[in-house]
Simulated assay, not measured.
Amino acid sequence: MLAASPQQVEVFSDEGCVDAYNCAVAAANECARINEEDGAPADEPFYTWQSMCIEHEEQPAGICPDCNQA
């Protein structure tokens, strides 16, 4: 069983967010599944995943401009 996280993890295409999970493993597995299904090259996937900021859900975790302001 996969452990749930309070941090949202989103799956993205070049058009934006296509799905959201509360587990990075589930998001990564979904990316792998749909990339394979769509025939994406391994070194240039069509779908990627990103953990999102807990405080600012629309921003990526670790590089959130709102949290990293001086």
Rank of each mutant, 00 (worst) to 15 (best):
W49A: 06
P41C: 02
M52C: 08
M52L: 10
E36D: 12
C17W: 05
E55W: 08
S5P: 05
D38I: 00
E37G: 02
C17E: 14
C23T: 02
N35L: 13
H56G: 06
N22H: 08
A70P: 09
A32F: 01
G39K: 02
E30F: 07
Q7K: 09
P65W: 04
M1E: 11
M1N: 15
F46E: 04
A20H: 04
Q69V: 14
D14G: 10
M1L: 13
N68R: 15
E44Y: 08
N22F: 09
A40E: 05
C31A: 02
P65L: 14
D43A: 13
S51N: 10
N68I: 14
P41L: 05
F12D: 03
D66N: 08
A40Y: 06
L2Q: 03
I34Q: 07
G62N: 01
G39P: 02
M1A: 14
G39V: 01
N68H: 15
S13G: 15
C23M: 02
F12R: 01
E10P: 00
P6G: 09
N29G: 09
S51T: 07
P45M: 03
H56V: 12
I54G: 03
C67F: 04
D43P: 04
A20I: 03
Q69Y: 08
G62I: 02
E15T: 12
R33N: 12
V9P: 00
A61S: 05
D19W: 06
Q59V: 07
D19S: 14
E37K: 14
C64V: 10
A20V: 15
E55Q: 14
E36V: 12
Y21F: 15
M52Y: 11
A4F: 14
G16L: 05
D14I: 13
G16E: 06
A26I: 13
G39A: 07
N22P: 03
D43G: 05
A24N: 08
A27L: 03
I34C: 00
E15D: 09
P6S: 07
S13K: 02
A3I: 11
A27D: 09
W49D: 02
D43C: 05
G16K: 01
S5L: 12
A24D: 09
N29F: 12
N22C: 08
G16A: 02
G39H: 01
G39T: 01
E44M: 06
V11C: 10
Q50A: 05
F12H: 01
C31I: 00
C67L: 05
V11R: 02
N68M: 15
P60R: 07
V11N: 00
V25W: 11
E55G: 12
S51D: 02
S5T: 13
A24R: 01
A4H: 11
H56C: 11
E37Q: 13
A61H: 03
A28F: 11
D19H: 10
